[in-house]
């Protein structure tokens, strides 16, 4: 298994604190505030359209410590969503028609209540997506998960930054690519990614460096060609996500002296259409402790939903949450550059 690197949290470095991360971005003195860009696009203040996805971050524990992780997840983290908080999520779903639950982490499968939660959400008739790092499926206590996913018709959304081992391992740790391919082959063996079973397998690629991906369609066809030819792996779709200047990716940008150029490029590539389609407009994010956020990135920066809305899942109220305005800051440029970036890939 890959050798994990220490998290910011374990190293007790200043950038472990969300306030320090936001201050680092503000210290750049970028020429324009994100809110001004929104205003000139006629989108200020940004508001939700319809909440279609409840994204539940069930904890920050992970078996990996990827260099680009905006959660600063890792084996040393202890934050895990309790079964009681998961029940609040289920109660919220029961009194709404939110069709999709997107389970993320950390490695969400490491939460001891993960399987119970998936089963209960499915019993409510909602679609479940699991954001999987793949290598967790190769650990002894999780090897049966591909079968569990198939039985519960869970959509599996897996991280694989590149079809080349060198690129993937550089971002996610030594040996990750090899384990990831084995996990993908076992998911394929359950019927995932065959295009006929309805078991949807999505790959997520984050750039391995200080740049964004401009051509999701071209990347997808290359991934499809190479993974099939070399490893016999098939999948349904590839999403290209931008790396967010938060937590460990922010640290890397600072240390590699790429922060300014990366942010300048994101600002310059602001696309009103991408802003209009930003995932925060149709997603509600729940933290491990039940706190509510506009997205997983705001969650990691300690930016809760506007105070006009309930701030905990136990107080869920669809009407006031839909009427809220969305909290934004400089990191939001990561979702609005070029073709846009979201948990569902490009937004334009």
């Amino acid at each position: 298994m890959p050798r994990p690197l220490p998290t910011l949290h374990a190293r007790h470095v200043p950038l472990a604190e969300p306030a320090a991360q936001r201050a680092t971005l503000h210290a750049l003195g970028l020429p324009r505030r994100f809110e001004d860009h929104l205003a000139s696009a006629g989108l200020a203040p940004l508001r939700p359209s319809r909440i279609e996805v409840l994204q539940v971050n069930v904890g920050r524990v992970c078996n990996q410590t990827c260099r680009h992780c905006h959660v600063d997840a890792g084996p040393d983290r202890r934050e895990q969503m309790s079964r009681e908080t998961m029940q609040h999520c289920l109660d919220a779903l029961a009194k709404s028609d939110i069709p999709t639950v997107d389970i993320t982490g950390g490695a969400p499968e490491m939460n001891p209540h993960f399987r119970w939660f998936v089963t209960e959400v499915r019993a409510l008739g909602r679609h479940v997506m699991d954001r999987c790092n793949l290598t967790i499926l190769e650990t002894p206590s999780h090897r049966d998960l591909p079968r569990f996913f198939a039985e519960h018709r869970v959509e599996v959304v897996c991280s694989l930054p590149h079809y080349m081992a060198s690129q993937t391992d550089r971002q996610r740790g030594d040996g990750v690519f090899e384990d990831s391919v084995r996990a993908l082959q076992r998911l394929n063996a359950e019927g995932y990614g065959d295009g006929a079973s309805g078991l949807r397998l999505v790959l997520v690629a984050n750039p391995v460096g200080a740049f964004t991906i401009a051509d999701q369609k071209g990347m997808e066809s290359e991934f499809r060609r190479v993974l099939k030819a070399r490893y016999g792996v098939s999948f349904d779709a590839l999403y290209c996500l931008a790396n967010m200047p938060i937590a460990r990716y922010l640290e890397w940008l600072v240390e590699s002296n790429n922060l300014r150029a990366y942010l300048d490029a994101l600002v310059q590539a602001f696309n009103p259409a991408a802003a209009a389609g930003a995932m925060c407009r149709n997603t509600l994010s729940v933290g491990w402790d039940g706190a509510l956020y506009d997205c997983d990135f705001n969650q990691m920066l300690d930016m809760p939903v506007a105070s006009t809305a309930p701030r905990h899942i136990r107080d869920f109220d669809l009407a006031s949450l839909t009427a809220r305005s969305i909290e934004t800051d400089l990191h939001c440029y990561g979702c609005t550059a070029g073709a846009g970036s979201s948990c569902g890939g490009a937004t334009t």
């Binding site: 080349m164 060198s166 690629a205 460096g209 401009a214 051509d215 071209g218 990347m219």
Partner: peptide
């Protein structure tokens, strides 16, 4: 080189 990176091409 920048365009290649944005297209998912690597140094290899």
């Amino acid at each position: 080189t920048s365009q290649a990176q944005a297209a998912g091409l690597t140094m290899e």
